[in-house]
């Protein structure tokens, strides 16, 4: 495998007993790319993502993430990736700065670095008035943006976002994507799952999983052409139903 890709997977497979959740998937992701990882419920997205995050050892195949092996170097993977989901977020009963310090501390940032990062984020997100407020009192949109910033506080090369915009209002959802673009512009690779098909259009490339396999992988424009569809929603429906 070469180092030109931040994720490289070859015939990656995960079986639970007789059930093959992920069935020999192969794909690669370029640095700085926004890579959409779509599929119906139960298609194997979560299992595949857990393997790539070093949380689950594959049954067979091979893969590297940020240059580390998903079989042998799971601890290095965890240190070198960011992760955010709608369900796993920040602590509601800690303040803004406490949350930043807690996560920065977990990722082993030095005291001076942590201080610098805290000021940088508070300035970036324009939340200096709220810095000592408990998270629970902040609007959902602010929390989401802070959660994303905290997920990349240790400056990882890649961040995994698992349905980051679920249940968020349409304006906040779009502001969140502005942040994703910004991160990608700064060279961070973004690996994202979503059930909003308009968001699939914002990805550089999109993969669609069906029954444990990657059924399609291309740019949104090429997928629309290939499936003769007006938008990604139609593409999704056609692929998930087997054309």
């Amino acid at each position: 495998m070469t180092n030109n890709y931040i994720i490289e997977a070859e015939n990656l497979t995960k079986k639970f007993g007789h059930f093959t959740a992920v069935d020999s998937i192969s794909f690669s992701v370029k640095p700085g790319e926004i890579f959409g990882f779509l599929g119906a419920n139960g298609a194997g997205k979560t299992t595949a993502m857990r393997m790539l995050c070093g949380l689950s050892i594959p049954s067979s195949g091979k893969a590297t993430v940020a240059g580390f092996d998903v079989f042998k170097q799971t601890e290095q993977i965890k240190k070198n990736i960011g992760y955010m989901s709608q369900k796993f977020s920040l602590y509601d009963d800690l303040t803004v700065t406490e949350n930043i310090n807690f996560y920065g501390g977990i990722y082993g940032l030095s005291k001076s670095k942590l201080k610098e990062k805290t000021e940088y984020l508070i300035d970036l997100l324009k939340i200096s008035d709220a810095r000592n407020k408990l998270l629970v009192s902040l609007p959902l949109g602010w929390k989401q943006k802070l959660a994303f910033s905290v997920a990349i506080i240790h400056e990882p090369k890649i961040v995994f976002l698992d349905e980051p915009t679920g249940g968020v209002d349409p304006i906040t959802r779009r502001q969140f994507w502005d942040m994703i673009y910004e991160a990608s512009h700064n060279g961070v690779t973004v690996f994202v799952t979503t059930h909003y098909m308009d968001e699939a259009e914002y990805c550089n490339r999109v993969s669609m999983m069906v029954d444990g396999r990657i059924a399609s992988l291309d740019t949104p424009d090429n997928l629309k052409k290939e499936y003769n569809a007006d938008n990604m929603h139609e593409v999704f429906v056609k692929i998930a139903r087997g054309k």
């Binding site: 599929g39 349905e163 679920g166 249940g167 999704f236 429906v237």
Partner: peptide, 10 residues
């Protein structure tokens, strides 16, 4: 339908 994919939602 929260968290449910577009086909199952339909």
């Amino acid at each position: 339908t929260t968290g449910v994919d577009p086909v199952s939602r339909n």
